[in-house]
Amino acid sequence: MQEQFINLTLENIGTEHLCCAIADKKHQLGVEVKKEWLQARIKEGHVFRKLNQKGKVFIEYAPIETAWVPVEAANYIYIYCLWVSGSFKGKGYGKDLLQYCINEAKDKKKSGVCIISSKKKMPFLADKKFMEKQGFQVVDRIGPEYELLALSFDGSSPRFNENAKKQRSESQELTVYYGLQCPYIPNCIEQITTYCDANGVKINTIKVDTFEKAKNVPCVFNNWAVFHNGEFKTVHLLNEGYLKKMIM
């Protein structure tokens, strides 16, 4: 089945689609932003592997030493996203993609593979039950919901950065930390800032545009994090409708 997949490279990234935003025109600006971000990351060992069809079936991961995430580990692989959607579910694609990552980690003598998940299933995070079936275990937590899962090859364990465990913001304004990796983010930022400007809601958007910023965000973070009244609220991407529900 492996011949059905393709990895993005510096040679093909200009012509290949990003399956996470394959059919939605409003996210095309985000696609270009992500491709620019990926071009720099591929040189660091970042992998974006997808089904060679028009569908949302892919895995994205990187060495923890270059991964834009507030996780500490030695010699691990960090998985940003593993996504299989729609009619592609139930065909073994997710397991195949994950196994490819695990095999690469073993071939490169890594200590293990890790991913952010949650106690209960949440959008934009890994499915804990699926990962546990593949041998992953909870190795760290932030608050009652967010968990770090790992498949360790040598008994070592990754951890969330201490700064990430703060889950607090000094600002009382609606505050959004956002990265450049997800193609949905530029449109989300446009929607919520337009709404806030029109309705007198103060908003503070913080672009996480360097590796150092990503490693030191004051919360769990996988490209997006929202605070309101100083409290961490969610990693769920916000559009206008979701924002209204959160701040009302």
Rank of each mutant, 00 (worst) to 15 (best):
Q2L: 13
N7E: 14
T9N: 04
N12C: 09
I13Y: 06
G14C: 04
T15F: 06
E16V: 05
G30W: 01
E32G: 07
Q39M: 10
E44K: 11
F48M: 05
N52Q: 08
K54Q: 10
I64H: 05
A67Y: 05
V71D: 11
Y78E: 08
I79V: 13
C81G: 14
S85V: 09
S87R: 08
G92D: 03
G92N: 09
K95G: 13
K95I: 14
D96L: 13
D96A: 15
N103R: 11
D107T: 12
S118D: 12
M122W: 05
M131C: 07
E132V: 05
Q134M: 15
I142H: 08
Y146C: 06
S152N: 02
P158N: 02
N161K: 15
A164C: 04
K166H: 07
Q172L: 14
Q172V: 00
V176D: 04
L180T: 03
Q181G: 15
P186D: 00
P186V: 00
E190G: 00
I192F: 06
T193L: 03
T194L: 04
Y195W: 13
G200D: 05
E212C: 03
A214Y: 04
N216F: 05
V217I: 10
V226I: 06
H228A: 03
H228D: 12
T234V: 14
Y242D: 12
